[in-house]
Structures are given as C-alpha cells and as structure tokens.
Design a protein around this nucleic acid. Structure first.
Length: 630
DNA sequence: CGATTTTGACCTGCGC
DNA sequence: GCGCAGGTCAAAATCG
C-alpha cells in the first residue's frame, strides 16, 4: 500500500529493532498515510518516504543549497528542504564535499549566483539543465562578491560572462562525451557482431554433430523457440547472441523454462491466458478452490506459482511458453540505505504477506501494486541481514497501468537492469556481468554496482546503491534516498521548481521518454541512436548545437572534461545514462511487435514505465513483460 | 465503513 | 514421503 508516510518516520523503526521493523507502524506515519485521491499520477506530493525518483536531485539540491546558504540563513524554501530531508547515508557529508569538489573540478570559472530565487528564475528561463552547474558555481566566491560589490550591473555582467564561458565549456564536454558514447556504442556493436558470428559457428558445429535424431531436432527447435523467440521481443542487441548461447547450453533454457513455470505470470502470460483461461480455471480448481479466481483475476493468479501456471504453460505453444519462462523470472533487486520500511518508488503498494526468511532475522514483506486492479507487479522488501541499514527491495512483474512520473524512475531503472539482464547475461551461468558498464549504463549517476546473477532461482539484477563512489565517479554527489517533504513537488514535471535537478529521476524519466520515442519509432523502422539523440532534452540539444562550434580537445582533456562534466551535471549524466541504457539494453527494432501485441491483448501498456500521461512506452520496459517494473 | 495490515494457514517446489 | 522454505491467501484486526 502506499502508506506514504514512512519515509518521514525514521524514528519509529529503529534499525536495532529489525524484527519489528515491518510490524511497527511509525508514529508520524499515520498523518501522512494514504490518501488515494492525492496519489494521482503526477501529483508531486504523493510519495513521501524515500523517494527513489526524486532523491538524487533533491539531494543534490540540498547539498547545493547548503553550499549556497552556508554563510547566511537559507531562504524559506531551502530551509524547508534542508530541515525536512533526512540523510540516511552515513557518508552524506563526504558526498556533499564530493559534490563541491565536483563542482570545483567541473567549473573552471565560478559563476556567481545571486540567490536561489534568482537561480530558479534563470532555470525557468533557460532550462539548460545546467542547474547544478549554476548552483555549484554560485558558491563562496559569489557570496564574497555579493558582499563587496555594490555594482550590481557589473556583477551581473561578469556573471553572465562566466555563465557563457561555462556553457561553452559544458558544450565542449558534451561533445566529447558524445564522442565517447559513440565509441562505446561502436565497440559494443563490434563485439556483439563478433560474438554472434562465433556463436553461429558454434551452433552450426553442434547441429552437425547432433543432427542425427529427429526427436532431438524437434527438441532443439523447441529450445530455440524457447530462447530465441523470447529474446526477439525482449530484443536487445546481445539478446540473440545470448539466446544462441542458451541454445547451445543444454541445461540453461530447460531449467529456466521449468523453473519459470512456478514463477509469476507476466503480462504476456496474462495475455496468453486470455485464450487459455479455461485451463487456468480448471487448474485453479485443482487447488481445492481456495483461490476463487475469476478470469479477470488472471493476472493475480499469474503470480501464484501454482500448477495452473505450469499446466497452462505446458499447454501453450512453445513460443509463448518460452517467452514467459524467460521473462517472468527476471527480477531486480535494489539495495539502498534507508531507515524507512520501504523505499518510495512512486507506486502504491499493499502488503499481502510477511515471512521470516531463512538466514535473515528481518522479516520479508510482500507487497503488490495497487495502482491498478490486477497489476501483477509485486515486490519484496527486506532488510539486509548483514547491514540492517540497507533495504533490499526486489521487484518482479510488469505494471499494466500508467505510472506517475515518480514511479517511472524506478520503473526505468529496473527496466534497464532487466533489459540488460535478459539481453546479455542469461546465457551466463552466473556472475557479474561487466558491472561497471552495467552500472554506468543503468545508473551512471548512482555510483551503483549492478550485479547480475543468473544462477539464482530467478535471474536477478542487483542494483547496489549503497556502494561508495567508484574512482570515476568519486567527485559526483552520491545519490541516495531521501525523505521528501510532504507537499514538496517531486514529480519531474515540476523540476523547474526544484532548486536543483532531480538528476536521477530525471535521468530515468528522460530515459523513459527516450525509450518511448524509440519504441514508437522503432515501429516505423527508424534507427534508434539518432532518435535517442533527437530525443535528448532540450538543454542537451542546445549544448550539442553549440558544442559543434567547439574545437575538439585532446584525449586527456576529453576524459578529464567528461569526468568533470559527468560529475558536475547530473542532468547530463542522467541523459547519458538514459541514452546508454536505451541503446544497450533498451531498444531494438525487432522487439516491439510481440510485446506490444501482448500488451494490447491485455489492454495494458505492457510497460513498467509506460506512462499514458506521457504517451511514452519505454521500449526497455515494454519489451520486458516480466521486468520488474517498478 | 472501506481500505489496509496482520498473521496464521495453506500451497508449492525442492532436497533428502 | 517427509520436512523445509518461499510465497500466497484470507479472516481478523486496525486505521482513518
């Protein structure tokens, strides 16, 4: 459920009392508790608590605000932020320092900042997405200038000059980063092509050696359909290659298929169950009638690892079955430091169970999404046994309804994570899949580590947001979950009202937009990268336009400048993250039809981040019928 | 009074 | 077949 107030009630849920963590109801909780009318998509106030989507930007905001107002009492708005937000992260101060360091590294010229209000105005007017830069540059120096300079015009003039210089610099950095991105993309494509060719050769060899028995051939066809076909609408560049690896692997696909039968149905499965409803119901009846399920409850039923799913899957064509088997197992686990009982990810959840899991004194709570009837998305929330300040949230399933912007953040995140999981790691027996790349692709501004485990009962992507910044990101403010204030805007549509960009959420929001654009254009068989570039936020496009006038720097400068840019501008980082994740894990031309059809069948968006409000369907989400959407 | 949480019971899969 | 663990259900309790 949406017990929205938890984030504000750190007090009641003492970390030391983990056993009662999920059972106690925070005191302050109640006052903020549930107000469904308020929890409308797009309502910025709706998700107090640890706001995943708004966290980063707000955190950055807070840090920047602290910097700007360090020598004087902060404006009312800022003080509200500072006071209201609770930093769950122990090293927040360090990150704040890092933020300043990043600003110092990025800003060769400090730009004065008159006041937060003035900054807000400039943001509204320019909307370059360089708010962090603006904020960062408006630091001590500007304060000093304000104190000693009575000539406002001169000050503004110099400020403007600084801004222009900074803008140019950022443009050049933007260009460099784009070049780097292009290199990464080309390298990725080359590697993928090479891998595909190798796999094809291996496949041919294996077929030649094993082509004797027809039965085996038939089974092989089934396997192929079980692996390749799903990947087709899961898509992704590496997908086909991975699927081929699966095909080569004797055990992986079968095990996955078998295990998948006990896993929750996905949207696609729900879709397919529409014409297999009788089997479902019959099977449900076999359960003793305990679960009185109507056809309308098929989605809910789908979550039950019952025989119905297995029988139904067995009765279905291999394609659908395999697709479900592959996708419905995917999970995304998000680790984040939080004292709150549950991270606020923008969706409404209702708790339906709690169990003591083995090996962990903390109970595991089970939630299901209640934003729409029959939404199959569920999540598990549990404290880390080793570090109870870490909250582990595992998402599973795919939303069948529009999501508010705040929810799209997590949706996009998990979407990207699962996209990468299903696209590239499924073939791997286990292990970490290029964590740096993955982490940067998914959450490049989070300093997170994305760990993929395919050997687990469910292929799981773990996004660890608790790690300290990696060397390449050390200067960047660490994203974290924070406690938003009630009534404070959190939706991304109101970013202009924020003091600083909600980098992470914006990144993911943009990502969704990117992907949505991609999806729609993929249908039109358009190239994706150009569309992604075309769908970049305005400030990026503006920067790109201007950066074309910049002379290319040296490689060293490029790298350093890129690092500085990334660390200094969460918006850019976000956009880059979105682009990368969309490119690598999110969008490919051949994935939309099947999933879209499935989604259409169910009348759902078949997307986690798919948002009617934005008429965007995240490709990475949309194709991930089993992806933990939220 | 409706929505949500709590909590014990139940179901299922898996390993022995 | 049995026990264990994960997951889910649903009646009762709680809350607003």
């Amino acid at each position: 459920m949406d017990k929205a107030g938890w984030g504000l009630t750190l007090d009641s849920s003492s970390p030391s009392d983990s056993s009662s963590f999920f059972t106690k109801k925070p005191a302050g909780f109640l006052k903020l508790k549930r107000d469904r009318d308020r929890d409308l998509p797009g309502d910025p106030r709706m998700f107090p608590g640890i706001d995943f989507s708004a966290t980063l930007g707000r955190r950055d905001d807070r840090h920047a605000s602290a910097t700007l107002s360090s020598s004087s009492s902060p404006p009312a708005g800022e003080s509200r932020v500072v006071v209201g937000e609770v930093d769950f992260f122990s090293d927040s101060k360090n990150r704040s320092d890092e933020a300043r360091a990043a600003a110092a590294a990025a800003a060769t010229v400090s730009v004065k900042k008159e006041s937060p209000a003035g900054a807000a105005r400039s943001e509204l007017n320019v909307n370059t997405g360089l708010r962090l830069l603006t904020a960062n540059t408006g630091s001590d120096q500007s304060t000093v200038d304000d104190g000693f300079s009575s000539d406002i015009e001169d000050r503004k003039k110099s400020e403007l000059a600084h801004l222009l210089v900074e803008l140019q610099r950022m443009n050049s950095e933007n260009q460099r980063l784009r070049e780097m991105l292009g290199q990464v993309t080309s390298n990725y494509s080359a590697l993928h092509s090479h891998l595909s060719s190798l796999l094809q050769q291996q496949q041919q060899q294996q077929h030649q050696s094993n082509g004797a028995e027809l039965a085996q051939d038939h089974e092989g066809m089934i396997k192929k359909s079980q692996t390749v076909v799903p990947r087709q609408f899961l898509d992704l560049g590496p997908a086909s290659a991975a699927a081929e690896v699966d095909e080569i692997s004797n055990s992986s696909s079968e095990e996955r298929t078998r295990d998948g039968s006990r896993s929750p149905l996905t949207t696609m499965e729900v879709a397919s169950s529409a014409h297999n409803g009788k089997a479902d119901q019959d099977s449900s009846g076999a359960k003793g009638g305990v679960r009185n399920e109507s056809p309308d409850d098929s989605e809910t039923q789908g979550w039950a690892p019952n025989k119905a799913a297995k029988l139904d899957a067995a009765a279905r064509p291999g394609i659908e079955q395999s697709a479900e088997a592959t996708m419905r197992k995917a999970r995304v686990s998000v680790r984040a430091r939080s004292e709150a009982p549950m991270i606020t990810d923008g969706c409404q959840w209702r708790k339906y169970g709690q169990k003591m899991a083995k090996g962990n004194p903390c109970p595991r709570a089970y939630y299901r999404c209640t934003m729409a009837v029959g939404c199959p998305v569920r999540k598990q929330v549990q404290r880390c046994a080793d570090d109870r300040s870490i909250l582990i949230t595992t998402y599973e399933g795919n939303h069948n309804h529009p999501l508010p912007p705040a929810a799209m953040a997590m949706a996009s995140t998990t979407s990207a994570a699962v996209s990468m999981l299903l696209s590239g790691s499924m073939s791997s027996a286990d292990g970490i899949m290029n964590p740096n790349l993955l982490a940067r692709a998914i959450l490049p501004c989070s300093s997170s580590m994305a760990t993929i485990s395919a050997s687990a009962p469910f292929p799981t992507v773990t996004l660890d947001l608790t790690h300290s910044p990696n060397p390449l990101q050390i200067q960047r403010p660490q994203p974290q979950f924070q406690v938003p204030l009630p009534g404070q805007p959190q939706n991304f549509g109101s970013m202009a009202s924020q003091s600083l960009p909600q980098a992470f959420g914006q990144a993911l929001y943009n990502q969704s937009k990117f992907s949505g654009l991609q999806l729609s254009q993929e249908i039109a068989n358009s190239s994706q990268f150009g569309q992604q570039v075309a769908s970049l936020p305005q400030h990026l496009q503006q920067a790109q336009q201007q950066q074309q006038q910049q002379a290319p720097p040296s490689l060293v400068d490029t790298l350093s400048a890129a690092t500085a840019a990334i660390t200094a501008d969460p918006n850019f980082t976000a956009a880059l993250a979105a682009a990368i994740s969309s490119i690598i894990g999110g969008a490919h031309p051949n994935n939309s039809s099947s999933t879209t059809a499935a989604a259409t069948t169910t009348g759902a968006a078949a997307t986690t981040a798919g948002n009617n409000n934005n008429t965007n369907i995240s490709t990475s989400n949309g194709k991930m019928s089993s992806f933990p959407g939220n």
